[in-house]
């Protein structure tokens, strides 16, 4: 036997609707986790990442130690998938620290609450937001749309860095917008590949008046977090899962708007269709002369001198019709 399970409250229903798959998706949410052993460095990296993403409730930070999460081992990703479905997060960052892999950060993406791909990063050098004072005056606004600057040929040639580039873009780009206030451009993620190292810098943008250009001059200020990374292991998405994840919904043609036209001269012009007016049945002002009794009296008066019974009957029929209306 089956039964239907419905949300018991309107609130629960709204939450479920928010989580449902959509044509235009919500910005991806990030969950931050840690393993059994974490260094203070990894801890502060995690809290900085949380700080970057938390605007609009787009990040969830877990403080409990997780001993059963081993992302690159078989079956070690099930707790991640479970937590992803609980929190509705499709990005994760998992920090660990061990002798073999010191200051280790695994970042990854999910598709339909299944792990899509992952990259393991070793953090060699790190400057936190608090260390840099958050950029002070040029601190970017929380939740503002970031720019990305990638430097280096390796982001095109090395497969792991091509992967990293896409991943970082997916991690931090936030919501897809149609319009943007150019003056509000205030942060950039700089990512440069040098040898086997990757520099990741989060900078604030200052727009200053340029001397010989009509566009403003850009200055960058490090606001943190600033990381020197090495790429350790990475797992690319399996072909069929990626194919499924990369599907784009077929854009249905915009519904044709009827009866509205316009051009630059006239502006918006609408055409209105009027139904045929029923003038005959209209309720007009009634005049005394048209009343039936009077009319009949008039007819009778006209007929008394000459006899003829047919005519008044004829005149009566349309009058009766009219009065009914």
């Amino acid at each position: 036997m089956m039964r239907i399970v419905k949300p018991k409250t309107k609130r629960a229903k709204r939450i479920l609707e928010k989580r449902a798959p959509k044509l235009d998706e919500n910005p991806k949410r990030l969950m931050l986790l840690q393993g059994t052993k974490v260094s203070s460095l990894i801890k502060s990296v995690i809290s900085d990442l949380y700080h970057l993403k938390k605007a609009g409730g787009n990040a969830v930070k877990f403080s409990k130690k997780n001993d059963n999460i081993r992302p690159f081992e078989g079956g070690g990703e099930t707790p991640l998938e479970f937590l992803s479905s609980k929190t509705d997060c499709s990005l994760f960052a998992f920090g660990t620290h061990s002798k073999k892999r010191p200051n280790n950060l695994v970042i990854g993406r999910m598709y339909d609450h299944r792990v899509l791909d992952m990259i393991e990063l070793g953090i060699e050098k790190y400057k936190s937001i608090t260390e840099l004072g958050g950029g002070r005056k040029s601190a970017p606004q929380e939740g503002s749309k970031p720019c990305f600057a990638f430097v280096g040929e390796a982001f095109e040639s090395k497969p792991e860095l091509v992967h990293l580039k896409e991943m970082l873009l997916d991690f931090f780009r936030g919501e897809v917008v149609e319009s943007l206030n150019v003056g509000g451009l205030d942060r950039v993620f700089v990512c440069a590949a040098a040898g086997d190292k990757v520099y990741l810098r989060h900078c604030g943008i200052e727009l200053k008046k340029a001397e010989n250009s009509k566009f403003p001059r850009v200055e960058l200020v490090e606001v943190g977090p600033c990381l020197d990374l090495t790429v350790r292991r990475h797992r690319k998405p399996s072909d069929d899962l990626r194919r499924e994840a990369m599907k784009t919904p077929s854009k249905t043609a915009k519904k044709k708007v009827k009866n509205v036209k316009g051009d630059s001269l006239q502006g918006k012009v609408g055409r209105i269709y009027m139904p045929k007016q029923e003038v005959e049945g209209m309720a007009l002002a009634k005049m005394k002369g048209l009343k039936r009794e009077r009319r009949q009296a008039a007819v009778a008066a006209a007929e008394t001198p000459s006899e003829g019974n047919d005519q008044p009957a004829k005149a009566d029929v349309p009058a009766a019709k009219k009065s009914r209306v």
């Binding site: 720019c147 600057a149 990638f150 982001f155 943007l180 150019v182 040098a194 810098r201 850009v218 020197d228």
Partner: peptide
Amino acid sequence: NLMVFDPCATVSSADECLEKARELVQALS
């Protein structure tokens, strides 16, 4: 996505990377 990518440049230090990035962001802006 407000993204710029310079596939030609090479950098060797962190300071250099910021300078290059400034150019990129300038171009984007």
